[in-house]
Simulated scan of single mutants.
Amino acid sequence: MGGGSVRIGTSGWVYPPWRGVFYPKGVTQKRELAYLSNQVTSIEINGSFYALQRPESYQKWRDETPDGFVFSVKGPRFITHMKRLKDADLTLANFFASGVLALGAKLGPVLWQLPENFKYEPPVLEAFFKALPRTSTAAASVARGHDSRLDGRAWTETDADRPLRYALEVRNPEFKRPEFEALAREHGVAVVIADTAGRWPRFDEVTADFVYVRLHGDEELYTSGYTSDALDRWAAKVKKWRKSADVYVYFDNDVKAHAPRDALSLIERL
């Protein structure tokens, strides 16, 4: 059968409420990633959003997961929320030098999530999209431009030359315009299809050679699980998309351990 690959998982894996509910008693915190990654096919690393991680963390995550597993990496809020995509040459250098490339073949898309008060600014977006390295070799070269904060803890190599993919999640209604989708398509950036219980704008256009879906909750943001009917509808969408693109789906309704169960239910349907 032709078509794209499908990856389904959760946004992160370290959630105390999952312990004893999804993670069985006896699975220690150190073994949670190994346990989850043997049941889902991808996971979003979201610690990278809050702070630059270290190369040894990425190496550990790479080594604790099965062959063929893929991580998405959430880009730092320093870039999206504080710098607001500006000064990308240095901020991207530090991000890529922090160890992302140590994931090797397990590095999937990089996700950029813009804050709700970030309005549509075409020149800023265009400059940022142009600054993104499109291969792991180019990213290693960018990483070598890191500043002194990463001296002695930088990872600036790649084991092979692979294409890099980027997804952008926007949360301001100003982005609901054809010009934005055209700009994303021109640069091969996937506009995230986010289900946010109606809180933020919903996009359904495919703007890259892959589709990136984030499911934050069916009726209540981050909290509610997905009904059987809702999962059937998402499964039908994924089947349609995968005819022509790779598909990544992440459940972020983590409050009551719905995310891993919903991910497993969607995997079953596919």
Results as ranks from 00 to 15, higher is better:
residue 52 L to A: 01
residue 202 R to L: 06
residue 129 F to M: 11
residue 49 F to R: 00
residue 66 P to T: 06
residue 112 W to I: 14
residue 90 L to H: 11
residue 181 E to G: 15
residue 2 G to Y: 12
residue 35 Y to Q: 08
residue 76 P to R: 02
residue 93 A to L: 00
residue 164 L to N: 01
residue 168 L to E: 10
residue 267 I to M: 07
residue 167 A to K: 05
residue 260 P to W: 10
residue 210 F to A: 11
residue 136 S to P: 00
residue 69 F to E: 07
residue 187 H to K: 12
residue 80 T to A: 12
residue 111 L to A: 02
residue 147 D to Y: 04
residue 130 K to L: 12
residue 194 A to Q: 09
residue 113 Q to F: 04
residue 148 S to Q: 09
residue 164 L to C: 08
residue 189 V to N: 04
residue 6 V to N: 06
residue 51 A to W: 04
residue 256 K to Y: 14
residue 123 P to C: 11
residue 166 Y to T: 04
residue 12 G to A: 12
residue 116 E to S: 14
residue 124 V to Y: 04
residue 94 N to E: 02
residue 142 V to Y: 04
residue 95 F to A: 09
residue 264 L to I: 07
residue 172 N to Y: 08
residue 209 D to V: 07
residue 165 R to I: 15
residue 92 L to A: 12
residue 10 T to D: 03
residue 245 A to E: 07
residue 112 W to N: 12
residue 57 S to E: 10
residue 139 A to I: 07
residue 249 V to S: 13
residue 233 R to V: 07
residue 246 D to F: 03
residue 103 L to K: 01
residue 102 A to M: 02
residue 228 S to I: 11
residue 143 A to F: 03
residue 254 D to H: 01
residue 256 K to I: 10
residue 187 H to Y: 15
residue 232 D to R: 07
residue 9 G to Y: 04
residue 139 A to P: 04
residue 48 S to E: 01
residue 167 A to P: 05
residue 44 E to K: 02
residue 42 S to D: 09
residue 208 A to E: 00
residue 118 F to L: 14
residue 251 F to T: 08
residue 119 K to V: 08
residue 132 L to I: 09
residue 81 H to N: 04
residue 97 A to T: 00
residue 4 G to F: 05
residue 34 A to R: 15
residue 162 R to C: 08
residue 241 W to L: 07
residue 67 D to L: 15
residue 17 P to L: 05
residue 169 E to T: 08
residue 193 I to K: 08
residue 162 R to D: 05
residue 79 I to T: 14
residue 149 R to N: 13
residue 63 D to P: 02
residue 161 D to I: 04
residue 185 R to A: 15
residue 64 E to D: 12
residue 195 D to N: 08
residue 231 L to A: 01
residue 94 N to Y: 05
residue 152 G to F: 03
residue 143 A to Y: 01
residue 38 N to Q: 13
residue 146 H to F: 15
residue 258 H to T: 05
residue 13 W to G: 04
residue 177 R to E: 08
residue 265 S to M: 15
residue 55 P to T: 10
